[in-house]
Design a binder for these strands. Sequence first.
DNA 1: CTGAAAGCGCTTACAG
DNA 2: CTGAAAGCGCTTACAG
Lengths: 339, 339
Amino acid sequence: MKKKRISQADVAREAGVSVTTVNLVLNGRQNTRISEEAAERVRLAAEKLNYSTDPIARSLRTGQTRSLAFISDNVTVTRYASAMIRGVLDAAEARGYTVLMAEIGDHLERQGSIVESMLERRVDGLLFGFMSARKIDLPALLPDTRTILINATAEGLPSILPAEHEAGTAAVNCLLAAGHKRIAFIGRSEKVYDPYLSVTIPRRYAGIDEAMQAAGLSFVAEFQGHEWEPELGYEGTLRLLDDGAKFTALLAANDRVAFGAYRALQERGLTVPGDVAVMSFDDEQLATYLHPQLTTMRLPYREMGYLGVEMLLADAPTEPGSETLVPMPLVERSSIIRR
Amino acid sequence: MKKKRISQADVAREAGVSVTTVNLVLNGRQNTRISEEAAERVRLAAEKLNYSTDPIARSLRTGQTRSLAFISDNVTVTRYASAMIRGVLDAAEARGYTVLMAEIGDHLERQGSIVESMLERRVDGLLFGFMSARKIDLPALLPDTRTILINATAEGLPSILPAEHEAGTAAVNCLLAAGHKRIAFIGRSEKVYDPYLSVTIPRRYAGIDEAMQAAGLSFVAEFQGHEWEPELGYEGTLRLLDDGAKFTALLAANDRVAFGAYRALQERGLTVPGDVAVMSFDDEQLATYLHPQLTTMRLPYREMGYLGVEMLLADAPTEPGSETLVPMPLVERSSIIRR
DNA sequence: CTGAAAGCGCTTACAG
DNA sequence: CTGAAAGCGCTTACAG
């Protein structure tokens, strides 16, 4: 990595012009009235010497780094959420930006020092990405630091969220469209109305409830719970069945809950989708392992990551406090049939 | 982000000394014989002005950036492999390094330009991280660029790999120790002997076979396949059963295969671990969803990531072409009982 | 149409 | 014990 670098001065010498000329030509400046002949000599010389501009020196001079920081909580380590990183990386690369990454885990208190160190490195913008959509308190930021939150909200900052209300409605409508009227629901929870726990789940519930109401229906049975793991789906389904609930369709809070529900249904000799149709949320890989494969509303992690970068680097800054909603596509597989 | 920066010159003015003195003090240089009194004034002034050194300017001068590049194929987007990123990030942070990330997906041909752009940014080292351990061809690198491959190998470069041979042996021994003698194996494949497809799977097979041989045993039945998805486990198990194979334990190539095997076993009215014990590899989250939870050999992604950074930044460069093996821990859960 | 020079904020060899 | 100055490689206001 030593190897003396080729500088604009070297190119200038080779081409027999000044570094000003070299710089102007190589940066493709317009209206500079450098003779095409000189410009050509510069380009040839640069090519010959295999010159590439030193981004560090440029940054020192311009104050811009063409880099951005992506700071997350537990995204790397969370199942399908890590796709958000891919979205960020792809979008950044498309625009010639480099991504500096840091992950703080559950140590939210470390945000301050991480942000500081990123800012010291003069990133052109800050992207925060969270595993599950909730409100967070960010350290006071320089007012002119471009910042976007992905899958989170914070006072006075623009954020990108999944369109959960819409998705809740779509999930129910999907079941209704297949002719189901007796629907059970597993995974409602009151806890979740604290924005520091979730900002989107209440919206999902609202979307679900509105769709049911619009159809003049209510759930024939519900099993509550906020730990959305297979255990909940398993126990909830058994309980509903034991209580004698009669339902032809089951709405699960997420794929893991659905996973548990499948097991319970199977143990009771019930088949999916013949006896019970199942609809879910998230679309983690698990959904494709199930038999039959699970129909579910996809959480658009990758898209949110991609959009985050685009908004961060857009010409006009995003309005503070605004929310950009990203659609959650319905992924139709085999867990629902017409009845 | 504008905000005129506080520089060492500002601190010098405030403290009434030269920038040389400021620099020496703030960098904690030894043997510099600056009066303790002057040093104290400098520290106070820096504190008061809230000075922090500009890493860009420092980099321009020193040629070092305290940053490293992590370049991966599909790590962000692959199930549990994304934990490798966390390991990298944690280790880098512990040493005060920043990580520049890029992911190239299946476009291995893009490696060249990505590496170039990272090198232009003067990263102090290059880390390559791959989803599954295989041999890759890297673009010719500057000979003095520190480089480490995580979960991959390349001509003349040091690499970090999971200790698969050892793990294969341990998996079999675990079954043997529980008293099993009639063992079936699903997931052997000849394809995998091409190093560009895998460098570690053949070792795993070797470890498995040696342990069996050492016990004077061979598998009572095998079902081949290299697409290690649930489908293979499902069909393989059914086939073995239909062929009348009598086994008390099943060794699955990975957790997904085991997942499929569970389903087949259950359909045939066989219970795990009562009728058939199951042993597997990977330890993805899936393993904990299964009932009973799966005993498996864990792929140490996070540890490999962490170690990669440590080796990259170690005082002595790692020997070219060397291999560092990271143990795969046995994660005992409930899919095996004594017989 | 093109160049000389200043300056971004550091670090360091040199001088005293 | 401490300071003045050069230089890393750019960009840009200014001069001609």
